[in-house]
Nucleic acid binder design. Structure first.
Length: 458
RNA sequence: GUGGCUAUAGUUUAACGGUAGAACAGUGGGUUGUGGUCCCACUGGCCUGGGUUCAACUCCCAGUAGCCACCCCA
């Protein structure tokens, strides 16, 4: 390395000093904050999509008899350890968990089913008529590397049925979600599998381990570990060495016990009867420990067609042992979760026609102080009469106000100026055609009722 | 968590080792009582920190964030 001449060094020093002084002289602006990684604001422009999805989901919940429930976002970390499983990815590497001021080990919930099972037990809901059916919608948190459609703070909504082990329940949930997705304008397909109960799964695991042990050398490193820890997951692996092997692997459906097999067959029969198209996927293994018997995932259809690797729009299954694992009485249950962010992405991609949020029926424009005062009272009258109304009370000039009315998409503008105040009249302007009529001020509410209930609006 | 790509007005973007132009949006005006078209003007920007250089928005490094792949799932 060449040493710099002294003069240059000196110049440098002066420059740095100058910079420092500049920094002092001009007090730096406060820094601008931004959302944490993987978290985002839902802005008004985006909101109609959220309203669309949430609204439809809530309607389905009502129609299918699911009651609304909200559980806290913070829970004891141990809850998920126990329910979801300490070895699962979600718990072992994706939880926002920390020790709070009281020394308690708590976390932001990574999913909702565990909380719902907890609530069911805590509030003695086994004493309610069974099954108990819940609908939830809320934020979940997973500390993952974010990208489109995978966030650290994201939403899930879902349907859970506790207290009934009948296969109809599984089918109904799949059917419900299938219909909901269609109603949202999304063509989807369902993949279904059964992973049996702990008993038959155990015997299947042995078969699977035997099969793979013979080919151990072709397995990837990860799968060699899985062979011991969680052999079912090997079926999920996409490594070049592992993937082809699953062709010859024993399939769990062939090893289900009578009870599990019957259950699965019945689920499929119900789906057939309801004409829900589904694909049997013997390799579908869900990543949460609490699942038993039926498991399923929903994908958008074009992803299947193009073979593009798809994120699931939703998934779920039966979890007959969860309540017991969490200290409750043995209680069969089944549920599903969906991701509104992903649904919205698809809705946009498919150009689904999403209705705008409330558009004002009426915009009231005013000119002059007297008119403004009179308008203030009139707006309230119109609101009470049930109209969606906005106004330009803070504005001067008609042009400006009509411009706003136009941008908002208001159907009618009411114009109240000095002239009208003196005459005791008001102008109704049809914003689409531009035609205007002058009405007696006292008759305006009645007149608007005529116009707007006459099928033009709402 | 590992690897790759990216970062310029509110948004989408252009150019350049000598500090930046556009379109759309916003504001004001043309029209002080009439919107959606048109015309004019204005506002507003190089993610942060370091380094190389006489000079960095530009090159290098780090941080941060976004996107992509893996992992996994919503």
């Amino acid at each position: 390395m060449v040493k710099k001449p002294k003069i240059q060094k000196k110049a440098k020093k002066i420059k740095v000093a100058a910079k420092k002084q500049k920094a002092k002289a001009a007090p730096s602006k406060p820094r601008v904050f931004q959302t944490l990684r993987g978290m985002k604001d839902i802005l008004p422009g985006e909101y109609k999509y959220w309203h669309f999805v949430k609204n439809k989901a809530e309607n389905f919940a009502n129609n299918y008899g699911y009651e609304f429930i909200e559980t806290p976002i913070l829970e004891e970390t141990a809850l998920f350890n126990r329910a979801v499983g300490g070895e699962t990815d979600i718990v072992s590497k994706e939880m926002f968990s920390f020790t709070d001021r009281g020394g308690e080990n708590i976390c932001l919930r990574p999913e909702a089913t565990a909380s719902i099972a907890r609530a069911y037990i805590q509030h003695g809901m086994l004493n309610l008529p069974q099954p108990v059916k819940f609908f939830y919608f809320g934020q979940m948190f997973r500390h993952e590397r974010p990208q489109a459609g995978r966030l650290r703070a994201f939403h899930q909504f879902g349907f859970e049925t506790l207290g009934d082990g009948n296969a109809v329940i599984d089918a109904e949930i799949i059917f419900l979600v299938y219909n909901l997705l269609q109603d949202l304008g999304l063509k989807t397909s369902v993949q279904v599998n059964s992973i049996g109960c702990p008993k038959c799964r155990e015997s299947y695991k042995n078969k699977l381990v035997n099969y793979y042990r013979d080919q151990r050398s072709s397995l990837c490193e990860e799968c060699k570990k899985r062979l011991v820890k969680n052999p079912l997951r090997i079926l999920d692996c996409k490594e070049a060495g592992c993937e082809p092997l699953k062709e010859g692997a024993p399939q769990i459906v062939d090893y289900l016990c009578d009870d599990c097999k019957n259950h699965f067959v019945r689920v499929l029969e119900y789906l057939d009867d309801a004409a829900v198209p589904y694909n049997l996927n013997p390799y579908l293994v869900r990543g949460l420990d609490y699942y038993t018997k039926t498991v399923f995932e929903f994908f958008s259809e074009e992803n299947q067609a193009t073979g593009q690797k798809a994120e699931a729009l939703g998934g779920g299954g039966r979890y007959d042992n969860l309540v017991e694992v969490l200290g409750g009485r043995p209680t069969p249950a089944c549920g599903v979760a969906l991701g509104p962010e992903r649904l919205i992405t698809k809705i946009k991609e498919n150009n689904v026609d999403v209705p705008p949020l409330i558009v004002p029926d009426i915009f009231l424009a005013q000119l002059g102080e007297q008119a403004r005062k009179k308008s203030f009272a009139l707006i309230e009258d119109l609101r009470r009469a049930g109209f969606y109304i906005t106004h330009g009370l803070t504005k001067e000039g008609l042009k400006k106000q009509l411009e706003i009315a136009n941008k908002l998409g208001a159907r009618y503008a009411l114009i109240l100026g000095q002239k009208e105040v003196i005459d005791g009249t008001i102008i109704i302007r049809d914003m689409e055609g531009g035609s205007q009529e002058i009405i007696d001020f006292v008759k305006i509410v009645q007149e608007m009722k005529k116009k707007i209930t006459n099928g033009i609006a709402k």
